[in-house]
Design a binder for these strands. Structure first.
Length: 482
DNA sequence: TTTTGAGTTGTTCGA
DNA sequence: GTCGAACAACTCAAA
């Protein structure tokens, strides 16, 4: 390499942390001056610019990052895209000779970054790193070099190839060089990420975006991980890690999580291995998106391109989105999503199963809604989850696996606590009827103040007949393949 | 090379 | 009430 550059640009994207940030660490090791920058360019995310809930999170996370940088003597430079123009402008203004970033894995981002590298490299050093995954999506492949389509062998291979021995997480810098006060930066408010009407109260009450909040969540989870195997399926309990949005924005990295769990607990402690498997699913999702870049909109299983979805589904889609299907656990989940920007994983499966199988609404509609409303919306994970539930993805649920939300509610929220929290109009129903109010006798409904069709909708589907109908439709595409 | 068994998260039905 | 079988077709790796 030539003489070390005096100034480096560190381009932050979905790696909004200072610790274990290889791009930042590399810049610090190579250059005297560091320019931390975030470029707002949602149009470069193709069909998937951040949704409303993600934008709220991003705003908060950028504020947190800037505060951290200032505490160390630096600051965050904010610019509008296009990224190419912003970077070229910054190179001109600062005379930087090095640009560093941590990789993204969405198809549109890969294409943009590749083009940028080719354009900038003749003039400056450009180096990218992995900060978001335990392994690169192209590293774990089958013996014949093709990508995996089944999770378990994928995860076994990743583990065998030395997961625990991967690089340890890097430390956070103790101080940073100052940024020239003359260098222009936008106020974060100018990015327009915050909602115009303040609907984010529920989000604020539920989350603390930023690196410190991520570590708070991890530490709280580590205290409870022994109960993970049991509690993770109970939507009324805080049994899951709730790390997904922090991981999505890179406020914490999976290497840090892996290291913290194995260092403090060891892999044989109850709950640890099961949780690491969930990190494995996150890896698998990125592996699939990398190798099958059309899957955010196209089914991986080509037979499903011809699936006979419902034709006029506007009304049922609307009822599902608003949490007014009349099926309590589904409505509770959809309202949890709307209020807090998040939904418990088990409930995500239930609402997705109802939408795609009982209501026969295309899974892409569900994926779009989740994209706009989830604070952890992630193209890889969201795509995998919806295709898996719909039965058209990798390692997908067998077509006959159609969840019964009443049975699931009784099994995983037996006392109805989750439903009483998010569907208060049913709060006074006795446990026996809270999962299926349409079965309650009139006097029970009256005593609980529930008037079906008035203050709570009657169920919009008959679970039994719509299940049978879904099975018939799957028969149709099985035949169409030939 | 071929065979074999297992594969995140389920439901229903009949014994 | 509990329990096993049936509900496809395909992927993957070990035997």
């Amino acid at each position: 390499m030539t003489e070390a550059p005096r100034t480096a640009i560190v381009w932050f994207r979905q790696d909004l942390r200072l610790a274990d940030n290889p791009a930042l660490a590399h810049a610090l090791a190579r250059a005297e001056r560091i320019i931390p920058v975030y470029i707002h360019a949602p149009q470069e995310q193709g069909e998937w610019p951040p949704g409303a809930a993600s934008r709220w999170w991003l705003h908060e996370s950028l504020v947190a990052l800037d505060t951290q940088l200032q505490a160390l003597g630096s600051r965050l430079i904010l610019r509008f895209g296009p990224s190419r123009d912003a970077l070229r402008g910054l190179l001109r203004e600062t005379g930087a000779g090095l640009v560093c970033w941590n990789r993204l894995y969405e198809p549109a981002a890969i294409a943009r970054d590749k083009a940028l590298k080719a354009e900038l490299r003749p003039h400056v050093e450009v180096t990218s790193f992995n900060a978001a995954l335990l392994g690169e999506p192209w590293e774990t492949v089958k013996g014949d070099g093709t990508p995996y389509r089944v999770f378990t062998p994928f995860w076994k291979t990743m583990n065998r190839e030395g997961l625990p021995e991967r690089r340890g997480p890097g430390p956070a810098p103790r101080a940073l060089p100052p940024v020239d006060t003359a260098l222009a930066s936008l106020p974060v408010e100018d990015l327009g990420l915050q909602p115009v009407i303040d609907w984010a109260g529920g989000l604020r009450a539920s989350w603390r975006p930023g690196e410190a909040g991520a570590w708070e969540a991890l530490e709280a989870f580590m205290d409870e991980i022994a109960g993970y195997d049991e509690a993770r399926d109970r939507p009324a309990m805080p049994g899951t890690s709730r790390l997904s949005p922090h991981l999505h924005f890179g406020e914490i990295g999976p290497v840090q999580v892996l290291h913290a769990l194995t260092h403090h607990h060891g892999r044989d402690r109850p709950g640890v291995e099961s949780y690491l498997r969930e990190l494995g699913w996150r890896e698998f999702a990125h592996h699939l998106l990398y190798h099958f870049p059309t899957t955010p909109t196209q089914p991986l299983d080509a037979r499903f391109a011809n699936f006979p979805w419902a034709r006029d589904y506007e009304a049922s889609l609307r009822a599902w989105q608003r949490g007014r299907t009349g099926i309590p656990i589904v409505d509770a989940g959809m309202r949890e999503l709307w209020q807090t920007g998040w939904m418990h994983n088990r409930v995500r499966m239930l609402v997705a199963s109802l939408l795609t199988k009982n209501l026969l609404v295309p899974w892409q509609e569900g994926a779009r809604w989740f994209w706009d409303t989830l604070v952890d919306a992630d193209l890889a994970s969201n795509t995998l989850g919806w295709q898996w539930t719909a039965g058209c993805g990798a390692d997908a649920a067998p077509y006959f696996r159609i969840f019964n939300p009443v049975t699931q509610g009784e099994r995983f929220d037996p006392k109805g606590e989750y439903m009483r929290r998010f569907v208060p109009e049913l709060a006074k129903l006795p446990d026996r009827y809270i999962h299926a109010p349409w079965l309650a006798p009139d006097h029970v409904l009256a005593a609980a103040g529930v008037r079906l069709g008035d203050n709570y909708p009657p169920s919009i589907v008959d679970l039994k007949t719509t299940r049978a109908r879904a099975l018939e439709r799957f028969e149709e595409i099985k035949q169409r393949k030939e």
